[in-house]
Design a protein around this nucleic acid. Structure first.
Lengths: 129, 129
DNA sequence: TTGATATCAGTAATCGTTACTGTTATTGTT
DNA sequence: AACAATAACAGTAACGATTACTGATATCAA
């Protein structure tokens, strides 16, 4: 792949690296627009796909409808709050034994797995009382 | 919720119970149309949402773009083939210790987790050689 | 049997995302 | 520094999955 530099792509990558909440394409669009007022939403989508292809970011399907993006390309656990919908990282190392156990019961080949915890985030937990 | 009987909804539920591959709304539409030739795609979506609300089926976000549906409402492991995109069950009991471990590192409340294994299904594994 | 209303088929609208178009910016080469 | 070659751009149209709306039909309790 023959990539040329672009300040828009850099801005997208930089913004994504500054966030731990795995924003959506639209949230990235809004944020980057503050520095690049006439960036196009299509440009955001195109560069997110490019960065994903190159392996600099990863796309998350944690919540179904809208994709989220993560500048941390390592495979790690996520948490989704069932109240507010926020997405966070769980700082726990991947238990690869789970893949090994599943492999024993499965005819194909298991390379890895993704896991997503659900419940109430600390903010929503406080708010309920 | 005050549900009335409908043969369309019953047909959708019955079809879904007969399948283990977690079909999409469109696949369900095509299948149910054989018995109910003028059922509407909107009716399929509406009843899938209804059945989900009532807790008779569950919606899966395994693959990102299109939702899949499962008549088995228990929380269980899934597998997604990275070659053909097929979705299967992994007949392994949920390791709840994973939630407990994550809970130790997390300020909110973790109720459960979902996990999805990735790799090559047995069919695609044969085909590669 | 009737009346209230959930459900229907059909279709228009919405939302997230991708593709297209003519123009601009980057980059390796003179 | 000027010059192509072409990746990337902004803007917009198109797309696929899903949801909402409409007037007609089916269910069901009284």
């Amino acid at each position: 792949m023959n990539l040329k530099y672009s300040k828009q792509r850099e801005a997208i990558k930089t913004f994504l690296m500054s966030r731990k909440d795995h924003p959506t394409a639209d949230q990235i669009y809004s944020a980057v627009r503050e520095q690049h007022p006439n960036i196009s939403l299509g440009t955001v989508y195109r560069n997110l796909a490019l960065l994903e292809d190159v392996g600099e970011i990863q796309r998350l399907h944690v919540n179904g409808n809208t994709d989220r993006f993560d500048a941390d390309v390592s495979n790690h656990y996520h948490f989704v709050c069932n109240s507010c919908g926020c997405v966070q990282d769980i700082p726990m190392e991947m238990q690869v034994t789970l893949s090994a156990e599943a492999q024993k019961l499965f005819n194909g080949v298991i390379d890895y797995y993704t896991a997503c915890f659900h419940g109430k985030c600390s903010d929503c937990k406080e708010m309920q009382h």
